[in-house]
Amino acid sequence: MFAEYGYADSEEHKRQHNELIAQVVELKEKFMVNPQGTISADLMLFLKRWLTNHIMRTDKEYSEFLISKGVKY
């Protein structure tokens, strides 16, 4: 939909999702090395940052853009 409606920040949005994937892989690797470690604290911090910084800001921006183009959910 980004391409179809010409969303200007689509490449940045994709980059952020690729960064998310890399962070998830890193957390998984930490857990595999030390299943009893502090992965839960790392995971909670990661999720908090992702929810507040990406979903509440970045996703809201593209949602508003698509709605302005007439896209209905």
Rank of each mutant, 00 (worst) to 15 (best):
S10Q: 09
K72Y: 08
E29H: 05
R15A: 15
L27S: 07
S63E: 13
H54F: 12
Y62W: 11
Y73L: 10
L43C: 02
R57A: 09
S40I: 09
E19K: 13
Y5S: 01
E19W: 11
N53R: 03
E64V: 07
Q36R: 11
Y7T: 01
E64R: 10
M32S: 14
L27E: 11
E29M: 07
G6K: 04
G70D: 05
A41Q: 14
L51S: 07
D42R: 00
Q23P: 03
T52E: 15
R57N: 10
Y5P: 01
G70N: 12
K48S: 12
Q16S: 06
E61C: 05
L43N: 00
E4S: 07
F65Q: 05
S10T: 01
K69T: 00
Y73E: 11
R49W: 08
Y62L: 01
V33N: 12
N34A: 12
L20T: 07
L27A: 05
T58Q: 04
A3V: 04
T58A: 00
N18F: 13
L43M: 02
L20A: 13
K60Q: 11
K14G: 00
A8V: 06
S10D: 06
I67E: 15
Y5N: 04
R15M: 10
Y73V: 04
T38W: 09
M1C: 10
N53A: 06
H13N: 08
L66S: 05
Q36K: 13
L20Y: 12
E11V: 07
V24R: 03
Q36L: 11
Q36C: 08
S68A: 11
R15H: 12
V25I: 12
K69L: 03
K72P: 02
E11R: 13
K30Q: 14
K48C: 08
S68W: 03
S10V: 07
M1A: 12
F65N: 01
I55W: 09
M56I: 04
Y73M: 06
D59W: 01
E11T: 10
I39P: 00
